[in-house]
Design a protein around this nucleic acid. Structure first.
Lengths: 340, 340
DNA sequence: AATTGGCACTTGCAAGGGTCGAGTGCCAGA
DNA sequence: TCTGGCACTCGACCCTTGCAAGTGCCAATT
């Protein structure tokens, strides 16, 4: 085993021990717990080198070493092996998710499942409107000058809005409008709907154009405004267990978890479902989250990821286990959505 | 001023000082800060009596006194005067809530507003399905054997469910079913809908009854299952600020705030919008919430409260301010709902 | 050149001990 | 019924000390 290899092995051991014990780890404990075939003094030299390179640090002079964000990054990228889920966990995923009745249920079950599996805070984004397509648009007259617009997407998501019309409308007009909207919108993604629906009012007589514009305008604004999607959060209590660790940082963290805008940025842009991404500590560049790591994965029925899910926890988390859990849940949810 | 009156005055002073300083309050500090016209020794006697009666307690022998749950209860019931909101707060309520575009928006704005005003965790129940009435039921065919059921209530709430039919249906059947359901359901409360819709299948031919039953069954189960309403939570981070106080109790508290079932029980049965209710510490009889008080108020457009809102905080909270804030927000939201 | 054992050094942490001060309860006197 | 005085209790704080973990460096060994 070459020297560099051993240094990496030492880093791996430090990360694993530190994650397990939550205490700075020294050279002696390291040789005791892991059967590296060398003496503590040798390890000390390696540790000094690792510290020079910025992978580990000591909280104070006479303490053991603690991994830095950079150290965790190296660990995640090159040292961790995928930890397969236990069969109990696998079963938990199935039984937990198979009972879901609709999209809302899938999301709320998923977020609770993730929180429970990882014992951390979980975040699940509702499938993004912007990447899904329209399955149906329904117009319901509530009053002569009031129409409910219901938008149904191919992911099963439903959005509704009430429109006050500039003038009274009758069933015939609404019926025609419904038919025309669906004719141009069904099966299209949202960007396409936006342009195609805008051209609709030309097909109607001048006296109806204001009404048509009110309805299509609402539809388009629903597409745009709700573009910033909803997210579900669970397991914030799990973070309190690490209370000591975050110390006084807990409050901004909890606040951040309530800010959906922040969460969406956190979940980031999901492009394809497969790879699980990890953002560690300061890589987040998000004020309340400098002491946390975020493990995310895209998910969705097809090749494209419609949304993201992930967990938020302390940087000293069990990365292999968390990555495996997030990946497995994302794959399973994707399968469920595809079957729908 | 009679002796009993002074004892109550002492209790009031203790509660106010303790809430302000978060530290046990002694006899000397009491006479200094409040101009009771007597000496510390006299206060001590009163305090001893109050302690005998269980209104206050000392954490340890040589410390000052702290109110007990019973003491807070007496304070809330008889000693606290309503603290009018500042004009800034009043304005905040208006500007914050007036921009709401739909029911979801009203609820999410309300919960954030409450959290901000009281600097505690806020909980708002969505207007209860069970007490509202049906405004419209819409059926949308998604596929020959698949129908989307959309339920719209008079509070503007929309619930949807997808039904897989036992056999293919055509537009005519769905149209007739839609008409009949609306004929018997619109304007009715949910209990009535449940019975009246059940009788519907008799009006259809035997070959369609299974289809009708599938749709009406789904409708009814939506009424029942979604009966347990959704709640919105905000401001959990505010609780972390009291971290020391709750000590290790923070985790179960956060967990409880994620359990919607627990929250709904906490919000309790709202019967009429007006009175603000306060549950103090052990009165909650809810495991994670023994160190917290809950201030709730019903709200709704009419005389009957459709739902509840409230805040959760430490027992040592500013009761007059919190009660005023919750009451004012509840009244304002009720007004908004009535105007809708 | 890499590894190792030894050794001096640093430093946080826990325990012990002493002082301080806030606060109490009680009692005698007004 | 109230008040001043007094002895007492007990946690908070500070300081010291001993301890143990862990380090860095160096000379010796392989």
């Amino acid at each position: 085993m070459s020297v560099d290899d051993r240094k990496l092995e030492v880093l791996r051991a430090i990360v694993e021990d530190y994650v397990a014990t939550q205490e700075p780890v020294g050279s002696k404990a390291l040789v005791d717990r892991h059967h590296l075939g060398v003496s503590p003094a040798t390890i000390r030299n390696d540790m000094a080198a690792l510290e020079d390179d910025g992978y580990i640090a000591q909280p104070h002079t006479s303490a053991g070493r603690v991994p830095t964000d950079k150290g965790y990054r190296l660990f995640v990228d090159r040292l961790s092996t995928v930890k397969p889920l236990s069969s109990a966990e696998r079963r938990a995923i199935q039984t937990f998710l198979d009972g879901a009745v609709d999209l809302d249920d899938v999301v709320s079950r998923t977020v609770r499942l993730l929180a429970q599996l990882t014992r951390q805070a979980a975040v699940v984004q509702y499938p993004s409107l912007s990447r899904s397509t329209v399955r149906h648009v329904e117009l319901v007259m509530l009053a002569p000058a009031r129409v409910l617009v219901v938008l149904i997407t191919d992911t099963g998501r439903v959005e509704q809005r009430i429109v006050d019309l500039p003038a009274d409308a009758d069933d015939a007009l609404v019926g025609e409008l419904r038919a025309r909207i669906n004719a141009v919108a069904v099966g299209q993604d949202f960007a396409a709907v936006e342009t195609r629906v805008a051209e609709l009012s030309e097909r109607f007589g001048p006296e109806d154009r204001a009404t048509v514009a009110a309805v299509t305008g609402t539809l388009v604004s629903t597409l745009i405004e709700r573009h910033e999607d909803r997210v579900a959060v669970a397991g914030t209590g799990n973070l309190a267990r690490y209370g000591q660790e975050f110390d006084h940082e807990l409050e901004p963290l909890l606040s951040a978890l309530e800010e959906h805008v922040v969460l969406l940025r956190l979940l980031g842009e999901a492009t394809s479902p497969t790879p699980v991404r990890v953002r560690i500590g300061s890589e987040n560049a998000q004020s309340g989250l400098l002491a946390t790591s975020v493990v995310t994965s895209g998910y969705g029925p097809g090749e494209l990821a419609l949304a993201s899910m992930g967990v938020v926890g302390p940087t000293r988390m069990d990365y292999p286990g968390t990555i495996a859990a997030v990946g497995a849940v994302a794959r399973y949810v994707s399968k469920i959505l595809a079957a729908h």
